Each structure stands twice: as structure tokens, then as C-alpha cells.
Amino acid sequence: MNLPILSIIVPCYNEQEVLEETTKLLNAKLKQMITENLVSPKSKILFVDDGSKDNTWHLIYKASLKNELVKGLKLSKNVGHQNALLAGLFAAKDSSDCLVSIDADLQDDIDAINEMVRKYIEGYEIVYGVRSSREADTFFKRFTAEGFYKLMDKLGVKLIFNHADFRLMSRRAVGELEQFAESNMFLRGIVPLIGFNSASVYYERKERLAGETKYPLKKMLAFAFDGITSFSVTPIRLVMLVGCLSFVVSLIFGMYFLALKLFGNTELGWTSLITSIWLIGGLQLIALGLVGEYIGKIYKETKRRPKYIVDVDLFNLPIPRKLVNMEGDEHGSIIETRKLSENN
């Protein structure tokens, strides 16, 4: 049996503090797997620069020149983690048998990659990296994260519990993923829809190597809301249900107050009037906002704009080392890379 060609896809956004250590650890891991005859010597590590504003691309570029196992892909602007991950998967698909996606901070255990590849060799086409526990998280993060998975399950979205974007996919699975042409890509929900033979590998999540998280509370909430509205129409149905209940309640109270008026027991009440107006007004604004969110997603889908634009591709267009000026500054290196890529 031929050894599988593995590509490790690492989306990066402003990761200069952690990138050198990440490169060192992933390089050692890949070399170990090659030595153990678990993967082919043709295997690669592909760093995807998602429009970073620091020296992330410069570090990727230099690492690719010094190490044959390291490749880089530079996007023209920041397009978000999910799209950057897709860019890496699609760029490496044709040259790989299986692909593993992992975040640059390496909080996900790279030792689990060995077991993922073994599962692939056994015949599984999708292998999910699943956290065995959340004991290391704060109470707030643990409560909100687990609440999100439970809420998505109640809404009819089947996610892998405690799984993020640490997973292995076969080339065939990535090829099927490429058929999903929607603009709002929520991979944690889309990948299970592919339906191929899958398995899970459990691991303990570690502390971030360096730098700061790129997913603060605001982004986490936005990500969760995007996942809900991308996969379920239940929220908009709940709004309709609230509207129907409000209508029924208003009819009951209307008949009640009419009876009071007929019997002469009614009194003018400013408080009840203004409260009801504010309540109904608030519900209407919430409903309009939710409907607008869905309409906005439809609008984006109809545009059919590309999810990302590749600026420099060092994976499919290798640069001759003898032509590269290793002493150039960051911007000079990037410009030189682009020109050499175009010439190739």
C-alpha cells in the first residue's frame, strides 16, 4: 500500500508571535510521521495567511524557502477563518490524499494527527478531532460553548459535540465540500452533511503557545449567530410563533377590556398602554432584524462573489531558491515572490 500524502492546513491571521514555534513543532511532527512510514515524504505543511497586518506572511515566506516541507498561501485580504481554511484545503486538494486542518496556536494536540491518519488508512474519510473535556476552560466559556452545541441540536443542526475545525478529510471529501457553493460557510455544520464514513479522535486541548486569541467574545457570538442563521430557519419560525401568541393574547385582553367597558368598570391607564406599545414595538423590531439577517444572507448568495482571492501561491507555484533574495525586507520579499510566481 502506498503511503498517503498528507497536507496540514494552518490558517493564520496576525500570528507572528507564535508562528516560528508552530512551524518548528509541526515540522518535527511531520518528519516523525514520515520516518515512521505513516505518511509519504511528499507530505506538506501549508500556512494560509488571511490578510495579516503583521509579519506573518514574511515568516511563512522565509520558512518555505528554508524547508521543503513548508509551503505558503497568501490571500489578498482578510476573509475570515472559515474562508481561509477553505482556500488552503482547495489549494492542496489535488496534491494530497488526506488533509488535516489545525489552528496556528496549536491548542489542538498535534499528536492526535497520527491517530487521524491511522483512521484514514482504516477507511474513514472524515476524522473529527474532539475535545475529551473542557476542564481547562473558564466556567463562562464552558457554559456558553456547551450551550451553543445543545442549542444547535435543538434547532435541528447536527454538529459533532466539542469539535471545532481540527479534522482530517480525504481528497474525495474535500472535493465534495467544494460543491457547496454558498457564501456563508459554517464548516462545523457543512462537513457532517457530506455523509462519508467518519470517526472521532479524542484529545486534551492545551494552552495557546503565544499571542492572543483571535476569537474574543464578540467574534464568538457573531460566529454562533452566523452558524444558527446559516443552518436553521427555526428562529424565524419562533418569531412567527411569538407573533401568533401575541395576537391571541391581544384578542383575549381586548374582549376582557370590552367587557369592563360595557359594565362601566374601566379606568384609563397610561402605564398599561405605554407598556404594551413598547412590548409590541420591541417584538416587531426583533422580528424585522431577524428577517433582515436572513434577507442579507440571501442577498450575499445571489451576488456569487468569490469567497477569497489568492495573492501568492507557494504551494502550486514553487519559487526557485537561487533566484530569491533572502536579505530583502518584508515588502520587497513579497513583491519579489509575486513576480517570480507570475513568471513560473
Rank of each mutant, 00 (worst) to 15 (best):
R172T: 14
D105R: 01
E176C: 09
N14A: 03
K322V: 14
F161T: 13
F148K: 07
T266D: 06
I45M: 02
G80R: 01
N162Q: 03
Y61V: 06
L89F: 13
D165T: 15
I110H: 12
E36S: 04
M152R: 00
V10L: 10
L317Q: 15
V117N: 15
F161E: 01
G292E: 03
G88M: 00
I102V: 15
S200D: 15
Q82C: 11
I274G: 04
P216Y: 11
G80T: 00
V291E: 15
V233N: 08
Y128G: 15
K154Q: 10
G147T: 02
L106G: 12
E135A: 12
F253T: 14
L288D: 12
K71E: 03
G254Y: 05
S7D: 09
K62D: 07
I121T: 05
R338I: 08
C98L: 07
V48R: 08
V10D: 01
A28T: 10
L26V: 02
T144G: 03
A259Q: 11
P235G: 06
S40K: 04
N67D: 14
I298Q: 04
F247W: 05
Y256L: 07
N27L: 09
E146H: 03
L99S: 08
S101Q: 06
E207T: 10
N325S: 13
Y120T: 01
S230F: 02
Q284F: 15
E207D: 11
K214E: 10
F166M: 07
L340C: 11
R142P: 12
R118C: 06
G227W: 01
A92E: 13
M220S: 12
V48W: 02
I319E: 14
V157W: 01
S43K: 09
F166Q: 03
Q32V: 05
G72K: 01
P4M: 06
L273P: 06
T35W: 00
F186G: 03
S272Q: 07
A145D: 07
I228Y: 04
